[in-house]
Design a protein around this nucleic acid. Structure first.
Ligand SMILES: [Mg+2]
Length: 419
DNA sequence: TTGCTCACG
DNA sequence: ACGTACGTGAGCAAG
């Protein structure tokens, strides 16, 4: 190990990654350890109450599904669900008789059992993973102590396991209630959640030096609305429909994922030629982004890897693969990894700066969770109004880009209310 | 152990 | 003609 040290340090130097290692990842390791040891309190009585209510829903749905199917079967079994839908009831099946929600939604109008199964799935997920599942991870101190993996993902993000606290439900109003069970560890404290606004699109605007996108962000515009106005040629904000805004939002996501006309068409449920129009219009509006993404791909083809702003490297062996599909995947990775990875670099830097801030000023505020673009803190009431602007400012200044970084925050007596 | 599904950013 | 959006983890059924 001692001999290896010099070799490793040398290869980090050659790659210009010494700073990334010594000043970012290494100090972050002990911060993550502290976060894991702190843990977050889960209120068992709240979650038990939810368990009973959800079980009633599941029992009721089960009976109604059996009745419509004219038989009893295991609704948790995809094979048995497929048999009921595609054989017994003769509903139209997609490729490989998939029963994934995207496909079931398309046939929901043909038979009432379909929505009941979708509903059942929703509550079963809630019950299994988030209500019963989480309880199994509560330690003797009444807290959940997740495990962060600092060096697993291909992009530089963290991952979280046992349990995963980076995928706690939020999008569905009922499933979101799980967050009411996450509490600060004492009566005097609040949970404070601060998240970056559109950090990946801002990173893209910076890296591509896309003037009009940078200006839109610096003027604090609604970026999906602005995108809609430009790709649909709309002059007045008020004339943008919610559908057009949603479509523009999907285009923005697509850009970050490494856009393809087929993928966008699939996502939006429009024709491929329509999707192609959207993309062409987008690139005509933001020509620097087209230039940047093309260069990301061609650099990757030449070097076999891509880099983040902080010099994190992702090797992309797929980029020169003889197989078309694999190669196309390599191109999307080449476009996405620098963006997702730079955003990960920035929040890691923010975590170091915040840790130093809290230590230097002897605050009792504790950082508990990281969810990719969001940090969750436990804050004593008497520190709350003082630390909010300090932490927000620290996050916004964690990196100085051509575009301003912006955060939003919320706090409350539980995670649900910290919005 | 593997594949499917679904939860998050 | 090819054929999928990027990054993860967990629970369940089936072999
Ligand atoms: Mg956000």
């Amino acid at each position: 190990i001692y001999k290896l040290k010099d070799q490793v340090i040398n290869s980090l130097k050659e790659r210009d990654q010494l700073k990334l290692y010594c000043d970012l990842e290494l100090p972050l390791a002990s911060i993550l350890a502290k976060m894991e040891q702190n843990g977050i309190r889960l209120d068992i009585s709240t979650i038990r109450k939810m368990e009973e209510e959800v079980q009633e829903k599941l029992d009721d749905l089960t009976l109604r599904i059996y009745k419509l199917a004219n038989k009893e079967f295991n609704i948790n079994s995809y094979a048995q669900v497929a048999e009921v839908l595609y054989d017994d009831l003769n509903l139209p099946a997609h490729k490989k008789r998939s029963t994934a929600a995207d496909y079931l939604e398309e046939i929901a109008s043909f038979h009432p059992i379909v929505n009941l199964i979708l509903d059942y799935r929703k509550y079963a997920k809630l019950q299994g993973t988030y209500i019963k599942g989480l309880q199994n991870f509560v330690h003797g101190d009444g807290k959940i102590h997740t495990i962060y993996n600092q060096f697993l993902t291909q992009t530089g993000r963290l991952s979280s396991k046992e349990p995963n606290l980076q995928n706690i439900t939020i999008r569905d109003d009922e499933q979101r209630m799980v967050r009411k069970a996450f509490l600060p560890s004492n009566e005097n404290s609040y949970l404070l959640s601060i998240d970056y606004s559109q950090i990946e699109l801002r990173v893209l605007a910076h890296m591509a030096d896309a003037t009009s996108l940078i200006n839109a962000f610096n003027n604090d515009e609604d970026i999906h609305l602005q995108t809609a106005m430009k790709i649909f040629d709309i002059e007045n904000k008020d004339d943008v429909t919610s559908l057009q805004r949603r479509q523009a939002k999907a285009v923005n996501f697509g850009i970050i994922y490494g856009i393809s006309d087929w993928g966008l068409a699939e996502q939006l449920g429009v024709s491929v030629s329509k999707a192609k129009d959207f993309i062409n219009k987008y690139f005509a509006t933001f020509p620097e982004i087209k230039t940047y993404l093309d260069k990301a791909v061609s650099d990757c083809e030449k070097n076999g890897y891509v880099k983040t702003l902080f010099n994190r490297i992702r090797y992309v062996k797929e980029i020169n693969d003889p197989n078309y599909t694999v190669r196309e995947f390599g191109k999307r990775v080449a476009m996405n990894a620098p963006i997702q990875g730079t955003a990960a670099d920035i929040i890691k830097k923010a975590m170091l700066d915040i840790d130093k801030l809290l230590n230097d000023k002897n605050y009792q505020t504790k950082m508990l969770l990281q969810i990719h673009d969001e940090l969750v803190f436990e804050v004593p009431e008497n520190e709350l109004m003082e630390v909010i602007p300090l932490i927000c400012e620290t996050m916004e200044n964690a990196a100085s880009l051509k575009v301003r970084l912006k955060v939003d925050y919320g706090y409350g007596k539980n995670w649900y209310d910290a919005k």
